[in-house]
Simulated scan of single mutants.
Amino acid sequence: MHVSKPPENPYIKQIFEEFSDVSKEMGVSVGIKHKKINVSNPRVAWEHEQFSRFRVTALTLSEMSTPPEFLESTGGLHDTRESTDVESVIRTVRLVSESLARHIYGLRGRNIDVFAENSSLAINPRYVRSWLDLLSRTPRVAPFLQKNDPFIAALKKELSEHTSDVHVQSDALEGMFTFYDTTKATLNVYQVASVTFDLLFLLVLGSYLIVLFCFLVISTRVWTIS
């Protein structure tokens, strides 16, 4: 768990304790790492730092202990749906959902599993797999997501079924790159003459002018002598 506020912060401490309790019950470990924000650097190391700049309590969960370098661990051609560990994703979903549910409803210290197995609120593996299939087919970076993208509409519809008030808000994240949401445009391609043609044309034109100049000079001298 990566945070920008000190671990002694009451909110950060409470959230970390919730995650620690649930992780112990699931047989996994969760640690906390504190890293201050470098305000002079436009690039953020972790996603939560964008919100921490505005004094919003946020954190990032990652299996990496240190932030990746620029364009490191960003996926590639082999980052496909088949390479995804579904069981690991399901376990992570349960860890996050159970921890947040206990934190929101103040259930810490009580012997209550909100998303217990074989219950009506248990994590549905088919549901997780269906979203993984959709995510693997959908580009999720800013240049390829339009404001009315079907993927965003699907997220809004899904949230609307479980909550009472859902709004889509577009925020411009400051950084070293500028992204545009227009993904469809008209490309005009023109076939022009090569450089060799230009050189030959220049040579022919120059030769013509030289011959014309010589002809005019000779003609003028002959006319003068006559």
Rank of each mutant, 00 (worst) to 15 (best):
residue 181 D to T: 10
residue 34 H to P: 00
residue 45 A to M: 06
residue 142 A to F: 00
residue 74 T to I: 05
residue 200 L to I: 13
residue 48 H to R: 03
residue 191 Q to Y: 02
residue 138 T to L: 12
residue 192 V to W: 05
residue 191 Q to I: 07
residue 181 D to Q: 12
residue 156 K to S: 09
residue 158 E to P: 00
residue 221 R to W: 02
residue 148 N to W: 08
residue 200 L to H: 06
residue 61 L to H: 04
residue 219 S to R: 13
residue 62 S to H: 00
residue 69 E to F: 04
residue 27 G to R: 04
residue 151 F to L: 13
residue 56 V to G: 03
residue 46 W to T: 02
residue 9 N to Q: 12
residue 188 N to Y: 11
residue 169 Q to P: 01
residue 95 L to F: 09
residue 106 G to Y: 08
residue 215 F to M: 09
residue 131 W to T: 09
residue 172 A to V: 15
residue 104 I to S: 13
residue 221 R to T: 07
residue 128 V to P: 08
residue 135 L to S: 15
residue 111 N to D: 15
residue 59 L to H: 00
residue 134 L to G: 10
residue 154 A to L: 05
residue 25 E to G: 15
residue 122 A to D: 13
residue 9 N to E: 12
residue 55 R to N: 08
residue 159 L to D: 01
residue 40 S to C: 00
residue 29 S to W: 04
residue 100 L to C: 09
residue 121 L to C: 11
residue 36 K to N: 03
residue 124 N to R: 13
residue 129 R to L: 07
residue 207 S to P: 03
residue 122 A to C: 13
residue 206 G to S: 11
residue 63 E to C: 10
residue 49 E to I: 02
residue 131 W to R: 10
residue 55 R to V: 01
residue 142 A to T: 09
residue 60 T to P: 05
residue 10 P to I: 04
residue 151 F to W: 14
residue 10 P to Q: 03
residue 1 M to A: 09
residue 51 F to D: 01
residue 31 G to R: 05
residue 36 K to E: 03
residue 181 D to I: 05
residue 87 E to P: 00
residue 217 V to G: 00
residue 31 G to I: 06
residue 113 D to R: 15
residue 84 T to V: 15
residue 93 V to Y: 08
residue 209 L to Y: 08
residue 88 S to G: 15
residue 79 D to M: 03
residue 106 G to R: 11
residue 40 S to Q: 03
residue 203 L to I: 12
residue 209 L to T: 05
residue 119 S to Q: 11
residue 160 S to L: 06
residue 220 T to V: 11
residue 121 L to D: 02
residue 221 R to F: 08
residue 92 T to V: 14
residue 97 S to V: 11
residue 162 H to D: 01
residue 200 L to Q: 08
residue 76 G to P: 05
residue 225 I to C: 06
residue 205 L to S: 12
residue 21 D to S: 15
residue 184 K to C: 06
residue 86 V to W: 02
residue 28 V to G: 09
residue 40 S to N: 02
residue 38 N to P: 00
residue 58 A to W: 02
residue 160 S to I: 01
residue 135 L to I: 15
residue 31 G to Q: 06
residue 98 E to T: 08
residue 51 F to C: 04
residue 145 L to Q: 02
residue 205 L to Q: 09
residue 145 L to E: 00
residue 32 I to Q: 11
residue 51 F to W: 12
residue 65 S to Y: 00
residue 220 T to I: 11
residue 25 E to I: 05
residue 21 D to C: 11
residue 41 N to T: 02
residue 87 E to S: 15
residue 132 L to S: 07
residue 117 E to N: 07
residue 9 N to H: 15
residue 95 L to K: 04
residue 102 R to T: 07
residue 108 R to S: 13
residue 216 L to A: 08
residue 19 F to I: 03
residue 226 S to R: 14
residue 174 E to R: 14
residue 92 T to F: 12
residue 141 V to M: 09
residue 102 R to H: 07
residue 105 Y to W: 14
residue 196 T to R: 14
residue 185 A to F: 15
residue 36 K to L: 05
residue 103 H to I: 03
residue 138 T to M: 06
residue 154 A to N: 06
residue 24 K to A: 08
residue 178 T to Q: 04
residue 46 W to C: 01
residue 161 E to N: 13
residue 95 L to M: 07
residue 179 F to C: 14
residue 220 T to W: 10
residue 159 L to S: 07
residue 122 A to G: 13
residue 188 N to R: 15
residue 205 L to G: 11
residue 12 I to T: 09
residue 210 I to C: 14
residue 133 D to H: 13
residue 21 D to H: 12
residue 163 T to R: 05
residue 87 E to L: 14
residue 94 R to A: 05
residue 83 S to Q: 06
residue 174 E to L: 13
residue 101 A to E: 00
